[in-house]
Simulated assay, not measured.
Amino acid sequence: MNRTDRLYALVEELRAIAPRPRSARWLADRFEVSARTIERDIGALQQSGVPIYAEPGRTGGYCLDKAHTLPPVNLTPGEAVAMALALKHLDGTPFRTEAASALRKLVAAMHHDDAAAAQDLAARVHVLGKSSPPPIPREVAHALAAGRVLRIGYGDRQGAVTRREVEPLGYVGKPTHWYLIAWCRLRGEIRAFRTDRITSVTVTAEVPPLRLLRREDLDIPYGVVEQLSLAG
């Protein structure tokens, strides 16, 4: 099990028994690593904002805040597979990783028989071909959440690369490409950077000044830009 999978599994293990604790030794035996490795993993999860706290005493250990646990989720096997199929359309978008993580959490919270039926149904669904846009560099995909100035290499149509510092403001997606909308310090204005032309990315420690992304900044001549809504 790689570290990313282990971190996810640690949260799920603590969520399943919350508010009871699990000791570092118990978790180390469960995941076949050292107790020191578990302590480092717990520290990394705490730094990322997961509400895990240590309960002292002989019967103590690590606990997950009850507010972080999920209520029972009654997804049907068909609904779970439909969500997995919808993820295919998120390939190459800034939120593919987060969507996959959300689906894993939902499936983990399903009743065991429903989860098994969903796995069986998913194994019978096949997708021919791949028409999604190219993947976005991880640092670019997390640019808005990170809230930091990026130092990028950017290639033009002829392949000439320039080095720029940019302040991320948003994303625009097309069927074939995604764009990072950012204030370009080199040009002194808002620019759209096609993500597959970003050749290198460095996340700096600098927090950019607040800039508003106005609708007129997205006045793209070849299509209508619609804002994403969580209301469906």
Score class of each variant (00 low, 15 high):
Val73Phe: 08
Leu64Met: 12
Tyr179Leu: 13
Ser229Thr: 11
Ser229Glu: 14
Tyr8Ile: 12
Leu150Gln: 05
Ala67Pro: 12
Arg138Thr: 10
Pro21Val: 00
Arg151Asn: 09
Val203Ser: 01
Gly170Val: 04
Asn74Glu: 13
Leu169Asp: 00
Pro94Asp: 04
Arg36Gln: 03
Glu55Phe: 04
Pro209Val: 09
Val166Arg: 02
Ala117Pro: 03
Glu79Phe: 06
Val33Phe: 03
Ala102Met: 02
Tyr8Ala: 09
Val81His: 06
Leu212Trp: 04
Lys105Cys: 14
Arg185Trp: 02
Ala99Met: 02
Pro175Gly: 01
Gln158Tyr: 10
Pro134Ala: 14
Ala145Cys: 04
Glu13Met: 12
Met83Ile: 13
Thr69Ile: 04
Ser131Lys: 14
Leu169Trp: 02
Arg15Phe: 01
Asn74Ala: 14
Thr93Glu: 08
Gly170Pro: 11
Ile181Pro: 14
Ala9Asp: 05
Ala54Lys: 09
Thr4Lys: 11
Lys130Leu: 14
Arg211Thr: 10
Gly129Cys: 01
His89Val: 07
Ala54Leu: 05
Pro21His: 00
Ser200Ala: 07
Arg25Phe: 13
Glu165Gly: 01
Val140Gln: 05
Ala24Asn: 06
Ile181Gly: 15
Val11Ile: 11
Pro133Ser: 02
Val166Glu: 03
Leu27Phe: 05
Tyr62Asn: 07
Ser48Tyr: 12
Asp114Ser: 08
Arg185Lys: 05
Glu13Phe: 00
Ala24His: 08
Ala146Asp: 00
Ala143Cys: 06
Trp183Val: 07
Asp219Asn: 11
Leu7Asp: 02
Leu85Ala: 10
Ala67Met: 13
His68Cys: 14
Asn74Trp: 12
Ala54Cys: 02
Ser229Arg: 15
Arg20Asn: 08
Leu144Ser: 10
Val161Ser: 00
Val224Thr: 15
Leu228His: 10
Leu75Thr: 01
Gly43Arg: 06
Val140Met: 04
Leu121Ile: 07
Pro71Gln: 11
Tyr62Ser: 07
Asp65Lys: 09
Val33Asn: 04
Arg96Trp: 11
Arg185Leu: 03
Arg215Leu: 08
Thr195Arg: 04
Val50Ala: 07
Ala28Phe: 08
Pro208Asn: 00
Gly49Gln: 12
Thr195Phe: 00
Met110Tyr: 07
Arg138Lys: 08
Arg148Leu: 03
His111Lys: 15
Ala160Val: 11
Ala118Pro: 08
Phe95Glu: 05
Thr199Pro: 13
Gln158Thr: 14
Arg6Ala: 00
Gly188Phe: 06
Ala123Ile: 06
Ala82Trp: 01
Thr59Ala: 14
Ile38Phe: 00
Leu218Asn: 04
Val207Trp: 03
Asp91Cys: 09
His142Leu: 11
Ala231Ile: 15
Ser23Ala: 02
Arg40Asp: 05
Leu10Met: 00
Gly188Ile: 07
Asn2Pro: 15
His177Cys: 02
Pro208Gln: 00
Leu70Arg: 13
Tyr53Asn: 14
Gln119Ile: 14
Leu90Phe: 08
Val149Gly: 04
Thr199Phe: 07
Pro135Tyr: 00
Thr59Pro: 04
Ala54Asn: 10
Leu218Phe: 04
Leu128Asp: 01
Gly153His: 03
Gln46Val: 14
Ala145Leu: 10
Phe193Pro: 09
His112Asn: 13
Arg138Trp: 06
Asn74Gly: 12
Glu139Gly: 08
Arg164Ala: 07
Arg3Gln: 00
Ala99Gln: 03
Leu85Met: 13
Asp120Arg: 15
